[in-house]
Nucleic acid binder design. Sequence first.
DNA 1: ATAAAGTCTATACTTAGAATAGAGTCAAGA
DNA 2: TCTTGACTCTATTCTAAGTATAGACTTTAT
Lengths: 129, 129
Amino acid sequence: MKIGELSKRSGCSIQTIRFYERKGLLSKPKRTQANYRSYDKTLLDELIFIKQCRSLDISMKEIETLIHNKNNPEQSCSSVNKLIDEHICQVNKKIKELSSLKLTLEQMAQSCDANKTIKECGILNELSH
Amino acid sequence: MKIGELSKRSGCSIQTIRFYERKGLLSKPKRTQANYRSYDKTLLDELIFIKQCRSLDISMKEIETLIHNKNNPEQSCSSVNKLIDEHICQVNKKIKELSSLKLTLEQMAQSCDANKTIKECGILNELSH
DNA sequence: ATAAAGTCTATACTTAGAATAGAGTCAAGA
DNA sequence: TCTTGACTCTATTCTAAGTATAGACTTTAT
């Protein structure tokens, strides 16, 4: 199949597919004699794996590690477990940061209402120190 | 004061200060005859305002709007209130996304333990479809 | 006088793509 | 057979918010 069909089947945009290839995440496909990329099921699966990882916000560098792991099926998967655990930690940390941010913003929002002038604005006032 | 002192007083790195100036967020300071930047209290306050906004994850584009507002002190501050409300919405949305992500990741982590081989790895298995 | 520390500009790098220009290719209809 | 539209190709530029570097210049301290 050509890149347009791969795009539809995977849900990745054509540019994104070429981008993953350029970055070395997705294997290079065969080419037709017109130099068009020609994909098979194996490459579709590779792409779906990448997409699934990205949807979990796993970085391209981490995906590279996971792919490397997949290519060594007899080794222990402890590093995969570790990677996911660390990723969960990062997500937790981000959630905490955002929750604290949210509180501050909500307090700030309460310090003003839309009927004041800029000069009297409680929000701008709080932002200035 | 020179840029190094401004950096220490504001907590922004020297590069970041120059970056904000280049982007038009921070006003251009006077220069000494050796072409060194020379800052006063007003510019320190400007920078602190920017830093405060950034710490709340307000984008540079939004900060530009806020600065524009500050320069028109007689106008209504309803647009400031609106900007903050929308920002809170974005933060809320992000928190929800991350919470859902967290759940998925934790379920995935439970589907495996570190004593398996890559071939049997529950995590990699789930990531493949 | 010299050395260290500070400052200057300009440029490249980061993430994960999205968007574009300009050229080449392919299939269907007139 | 010609043309038109859809598809693909590479290469380049852009995004956000900085960070890092090179090479030159200035100031400060000894």
